[in-house]
Design a protein around this nucleic acid. Sequence first.
DNA 1: AGTGGCTCCTGAGCGC
DNA 2: TGCGCTCAGGAGCCAC
Length: 271
Amino acid sequence: MPELPEVETIVGDLKKQIVGSRFITITATYPKAVEPGLHHFHLIQRQTVTDVYRRGKFICIRFDNKNIVTIHLRMSGRIVVSTHNAPAEPFERVRLDFNTCSLRFSDIRKFGRVWIGHENDYQDLTGISKLGPEPLADSFSFETLVNNVKGRKGVLKKILLDQTIVAGIGNIYADEICFDAGIRPHRGIDRMTTGEWTRVTQSIKKILKQGIENRGTSISDFHDAHGEKGFNQDHLKVYGRAKCECYACQTPLKRFKIVGRGTVYCPKCQL
DNA sequence: AGTGGCTCCTGAGCGC
DNA sequence: TGCGCTCAGGAGCCAC
């Protein structure tokens, strides 16, 4: 499941591959993935890509007439840039053809979406307008997090997964952040100290940066825009390691469900 | 306003 | 071998 580091990796690749390219046409074998609809893509006919950037887990492709194509990979989405005559990717749903190359959006579970909208309204269309702050921005601090959490109830992991509180964290990195901070994912936020919020803030930045440095986590189906796997999966401390020994204390890691998500933690290292 | 639960989807893994 | 069941989960939506 692509989260902030995976999306950042893809965006970095895409920037090199499609900035300066002219849009030609869109093809969708699964039209439901395209919003508001395929015919809206005439808006970017012959327009040139001026930038590719990330907001939360959204990939944004900007064109010179200020229209923006936004992509969210959700659970199983993938993007591969290839030549026009390359065969379709497995589970290819949408294809964007540029003068120089062909962007393939493939998605086994069909949860992913591709939107087109003008810079004035694309944020409302896609839901980007509801996103919380970028955790890797210099302005994101312990105070930002505590302010955004004010008045909320629930447990730490739920807060980390809430895109309106902080943007870009998903299930894998939420577990890793909780481990790094030494706090159980099911700790009630009303029982967290200032020192613990500081640790959580530091761990968010550290774990996400590490994910980017490792070009993402390739559990199940993540690949970058070249179709290559990342290698952050080799650095995970808890996610996917239920019943295995904790690297730090050799205690078997525990797994349970929290807010409907599989969650792994160390009962000794995390309090 | 905030929260819990349902829904969208399909491949993988399992028991029989 | 093959069927049917359950699970995985990001985020929108609805009822409360």
